[in-house]
Computed example of a mutant assay.
Amino acid sequence: MYITITPQKMGGSYSKSSADFVGYLEKENQGLDQEDMECFFNQYDNEISAEEVIREIDGNTAKLEKTEPRFYSITVSPSKYELGKLEHNNEDLKKYTRELMKDYVTSFNREINGRPITIDDIKYYAKIEHQRTFKGSDVQVKENQPFATKILQLKTDIRKIENGTMAGNVKEKKTEITKLERETPHQQAGKRIVQGMQKEGSQSHIHIIVSRKDASNRFSLSPGSKYKTSNVELNGKSVKRGFDRDSFFEKAEKTFDKTFGYHRNFAETYQARKDFIKNPKIYFAALMKLPTNEKALAFKIMGKAGVPMMPSIPVTQGQLAMKIFKGLRRGVEVAIKSSSIGI
């Protein structure tokens, strides 16, 4: 499960409207008949139009400054293993989203009128998408780039030869291009993976747009708060503040597992991925203690995610050299970011 929480951002300041973002989320509906379109939904309704989402989000921004986001975007990307556990893709993802947003509100260390925040205190809209494309930050695209650069240069040379500004053999250069295309490390359906290429297989994921202000348009609820959970003295009163992202991500996993009876492998857990970046020694020590089958699946999952692997699987903790850790950390940070793991 890969989850990110990002603030609305348009250039140097925050736009007063959510129209551009909502329009972006409508991209998969382009060219479809009305009955085939994927509508927005929230905690209680399934058929919500883009126009209503824009109107409700834009109208819920009382007293926000230009330097403050009007809304936050939450992207939820189940892995292919998790998606494989769903029986009814769309309905199951909607069900999970509604449970997930309950976890979201309980991760706030805030109160409204002396009571904990509830699901009815937030204004959110969600949309399911079924397609993904490769980004420039994806490991596959980055590792293919040297080949792409050479191919581009060869194609440029061919054009120059054909228009007479350069001497050379077009046939030889085309043969070289064919060879490079074949040797490119990351391919899909026999073609070199490039930025913008649609990813094959099940790619269903959820986009959620949640208002910065509560449903009453009176209180600010920011999951981007720099405060995790704390109390502060304000006007002589103790006031709760903060949002616990770690708690939210961990709850999100447990909710999915409980809802769909999913057995989560060690390598799929938020805590494990976090340790992988911050303390790979602890990560690999825990990995090597797993039962053989669990360990094999963990390495398979890591490989599918584009996580760079060690040249050989260590047998003892003493073999986990720090110089390998440093190289792993650099590679893993790229893999984690390209997979949109929000930590």
Rank of each mutant, 00 (worst) to 15 (best):
Q140M: 01
G303R: 15
F248I: 12
H88C: 12
F21R: 09
S15R: 05
R70C: 09
Q145E: 15
E162C: 03
P308I: 04
F256C: 07
K295C: 13
E47A: 03
K226H: 08
M288I: 14
K135H: 05
R329C: 04
A321K: 15
E200F: 03
K85G: 08
P223N: 05
S230E: 12
I301R: 07
V141W: 04
G306V: 02
S340G: 04
A335K: 05
E143R: 12
R212L: 06
K295W: 02
H263I: 12
N144M: 11
L320Q: 06
Q145M: 14
R329D: 02
V307A: 10
S204C: 02
E91I: 10
N163E: 14
Y104E: 01
L287K: 01
K27G: 00
G242S: 10
N144G: 07
G306C: 09
K258D: 14
K237H: 08
I57L: 15
R70K: 15
L93F: 12
I112F: 13
N89Y: 11
S247K: 14
G342W: 01
I177C: 05
E233T: 05
T4V: 12
K9P: 03
F256L: 08
I54Q: 07
T97C: 15
E181C: 06
I122E: 15
D275Y: 08
N90H: 06
K95T: 15
Y104W: 07
K123C: 14
V332L: 12
F243S: 09
M197A: 13
T67I: 07
E183R: 12
A189V: 00
D157K: 11
M197F: 10
N163L: 06
G201E: 04
N163Q: 07
R110Q: 14
G327V: 01
M288D: 08
V53E: 06
R115N: 10
G331T: 00
N279Q: 13
H186G: 08
I74W: 02
N113P: 01
R110S: 05
A50Q: 10
T75Y: 04
Q187C: 06
V76I: 02
T106E: 01
L221F: 01
M310G: 03
A167W: 00
Y124E: 04
F249G: 03
I277S: 14
A215W: 00
I341G: 09
K304G: 06
V307D: 08
I208V: 15
K295R: 15
A321C: 04
R330P: 01
D120M: 07
G12Q: 07
G23L: 03
T156P: 00
G164D: 12
M309C: 02
T156A: 12
